[in-house]
Amino acid sequence: MENRITSLLHQKGENILSIYFTAGYPELNDTKRIIEELERCGADLIEIGMPFSDPVADGPVIQHSSEVALSNGMTINLLFEQLKEIRKTVSVPLILMGYLNPVMQFGIEEFCLKCKETGIDGTIIPDLPLEVYQEEYKEIFEKYSLSNIFLITPQTPEQRIRMIDLLSNGFIYMVSSSSTTGVKESGDNEQIAYFERIRSMNLRSKQLIGFGISDKASFERAAQYASGAIIGSAFVTALAGEMPIEHKVNAFMLKFLKTSII
């Protein structure tokens, strides 16, 4: 299966910088501007969060952004509406990330179809279990060239990692420690041992490390052990405040680049 995610992983094997934000936060209609500015500032991949009322895998920052986004009126329907013309201006891979219930209520096939029409390349649905995906959803996702991205954690046994590897047609999302989002990455020996253990498994799928990656230092540390890393809570935190949204995105991204784009 080919899509923008697989091409990216093919072309750029290292230092992939992926950024997560919650659609509809801080303002309902910031979505498109955030994406365009992220691409302009050098993000290799963008994860667009679909807010849910009960995000159990998320820490306080993304809980808050989800709450604000929902009270701003964000829905999956509206998100597809906002992204309708996104492929006219943006070429990096786009991934939708969210919990299963809103997607299920939207309708799985309808959702996948909309993703395809919009130019979405993949999904991350943390509470969609591997087994259910395999039995019920895999065919549909593949029909619309969507990569469903699975998570692994320090607790995931080797055999399960191998299974996830075989099922993956994008990257594997390597959760940096046993935690909800936004907990600071420790960089301790235990974590390094986990990173090394996964690296030595020689998986066919590439891995991006996420959860707790907050700045250039933690990004670079993680990127030594995988094809890149994902920044979520730290970016969402940077979106608060009064400045124009492009400035906030730009200021944050500057920290990850040697030279300014502006």
Binding site: V56, V132, Q155, R160
Partner: peptide, 11 residues
């Protein structure tokens, strides 16, 4: 029923 849980609870 079923078990719709994130990987972090899987073990």
């Amino acid at each position: 029923g079923g078990a719709f849980i994130p990987e972090m609870m899987q073990q």
